[in-house]
Amino acid sequence: MVEMEFDALPNLSGLYVKAAIKRRKPPTATTKLPDLPARAAGVIVDDLDDYLKICAIADDGHLPPTYPQVLATPLHAAIVAHADFPLPALGMVHLENRVEQKRPIAVGEKFDLRCELSGSEWIPHLGLKFAIDTVVEVGGETIWKSQLWALSRGAKKDLEKRERKPRPAPEPGEVADPLVSVMVDVPADMGRRYSAVCGDYNPIHLYPLTAKLFGFKRPIVHGMWTFARCWAELANFADPEDLVFTVGFKQPLYLPTTALITAVEEEDGEISYRAGSVDGQRLFLRGKAHNGALNRPTVP
């Protein structure tokens, strides 16, 4: 096992190009993933303004729980670009994320970031689903960790066919008594603006033409932006201590659009949230946030 160790977070664009030009075969049911840990020590974030602004998150002096994942993206790219990594980088789909935060990380606090491949599962009609774990440590103590699941599509010939059941039409309107129900305008340049902040210049996020080259009718926004934008609405309700924050990415959010973000309190105290189209026909993502106690904002 070789650990990739970086003194500073590596440049994402270079790694993307490196990963993209590597010719690799699509996975099969027998594809095995190697151990490929990556580490960056002594990371300090002292300027979050652009990220907070673009995601509409209020500055509370701490990193939002979604941000370490953004920081870890270059390490993930380093893993994917590594010669021993067997899956093609192009066409990989980010499926879901589970973030566990013991306590929020203060802006200016020094921490170490560690990432590693942690598991895989062959989905007969889709391909290989694999996980990358990311850990933030301060003085050897884990204070934040995430598990990201992505999909590398199998070749058509290796996949089983699945019958698609017609989905029932969504019920009109909104569930009763939501915590949040808010319309968010997502402008045409949001992909480019977020790319400039997070360094992920994947062409599918940039321009109509570059998105079309990769099979998208229009540019799509980064799933991690939508995830963070949802956090901006949930932050009033979810305690950042001992937080578990999950997301499942469902359909791409084509730009420009207006998204509807909703959150409801479940009977067990968890917050379920989703971002979808205004007419309820498309679901971009959904997930949960919980930490035992719901935090309702106090009123004057």
């Binding site: 998150i57 309107g173 909104e174 009763a176 009033n236 973000i261």
Partner: peptide, 14 residues
Amino acid sequence: REIPGNRGAPWPQE
């Protein structure tokens, strides 16, 4: 059932 967007969202607590 409610009107989507009607509930809004509270301004950030901070």
